[in-house]
């Protein structure tokens, strides 16, 4: 079982307290009606499906907050977690710590 660091609680807690919430940094368009069918399709359904580091969202059921994470889909390791609304973290060595 993984330990996941909640950036709001500032604690590493068991995986059981968390749920996955899809890929991160896919913002809902401000005006969906302005999007073509293809653009809307991409927003709805097209995802990175990364092999390796993957930006994704998790929710800590304990505090109820959604946050962002970089998780390696091969090793299942969390490289870093950060609060919702923060910009995409670069994949630096620091993040990989």
């Amino acid at each position: 079982m993984l330990l996941i660091h909640c950036p709001y609680c500032e604690d590493s807690l068991p995986e059981l307290e968390f749920t996955y919430a899809g890929e991160a940094h896919i913002a809902r368009p401000a005006d969906p009606s302005a999007l073509s069918d293809e653009e809307w399709r991409d927003f709805l359904f097209i995802r990175t499906n990364a092999r390796g580091p993957h930006y994704e969202r998790w929710r800590h059921i304990g505090c109820g907050r959604f946050f962002n994470a970089i998780r390696d889909t091969v090793s299942d390791r969390f490289l870093t977690t950060y609060k919702a609304g923060e910009p995409r973290r670069p994949l630096t060595n620091e993040a990989a710590e």
Partner: peptide
């Protein structure tokens, strides 16, 4: 509730 929280926290804070 989770869906509402998701939109409130991340799309319309």
């Amino acid at each position: 509730l989770t869906m509402m929280e998701d939109y409130l926290q991340t799309e319309w804070p």
